[in-house]
Design a protein around this nucleic acid. Structure first.
Lengths: 110, 110
DNA sequence: TTTATTTATCGTAATATTGCAATAAATAGA
DNA sequence: TCTATTTATTGCAATATTACGATAAATAAA
């Protein structure tokens, strides 16, 4: 119990869920927004921008990285984070398709 | 500890996170997909379509309802569930804006 | 080499989520 | 009223998430 039955769902369902879950926390949304806005995406600037401890931010960055949404490049002592183009576009595509399905469905019963 | 600092983030960040979190589980993605596909959206048909116990499905439905993504109409002994048009479109809009921001950002540094 | 800077990891506590069986609640129909 | 059907809720166990201080690891600079 307490364990999601991943193998019982389709790959697409698990994929959407994993990506959505990754941005399912305000801190991680804030990180994404920051990466979209700022020129610099050095880890430290993200930590400064968030109202959380460095360790906590690092943990959120790790989750986004695990989901594939962001990637980091080592730059001396610091790390430059940014959105992962491929995954981000895939995410966009998958969600667009989902929203598109809704437009096409005419069976609104309530 | 262990409690998300909701008040430290913007309304938009919390909004995106809450909606994303709601579809951040394969079972709930499956429910959404089912509602998009099926004519009937009676609760029982959703339970039959998912590889989970009735109580578990009911719990997932409650979460989607709490997030506002779906709504249910009582129809005799059963309940007819469907996507909440207003919230779904809002979700679409918010995410489209987020993806749009990425298109416009030219500061890909890694 | 030593020190400072930057980021990741560990350990821990509090809380949340997932899942199910059992049971309750609510209504339709006999 | 009694029974069957349908959905929600309760109670519980297992696991996951969130948060932070302390500390480790890795590199730059003195």
């Amino acid at each position: 119990m307490g364990l999601t039955k991943t193998d019982q769902f389709t790959e697409r369902q698990n994929e959407i869920a994993a990506l959505a879950k990754a941005i399912g926390h305000p801190a991680r949304v804030a990180i994404i927004e920051h990466l979209l806005k700022e020129n610099s995406c050095v880890c430290g600037s993200i930590v400064d921008a968030l109202p959380l401890a460095q360790a906590t931010v690092s943990q959120h960055l790790k989750e986004l990285k695990t989901a594939g949404i962001i990637k980091g490049n080592i730059e001396g002592t610091s790390i430059c984070y940014c959105i992962n183009d491929v995954v981000w576009n895939k995410f966009k595509g998958i969600l667009s398709a989902l929203f598109e399905e809704y437009e096409l469905s005419k069976n609104k019963c309530c």
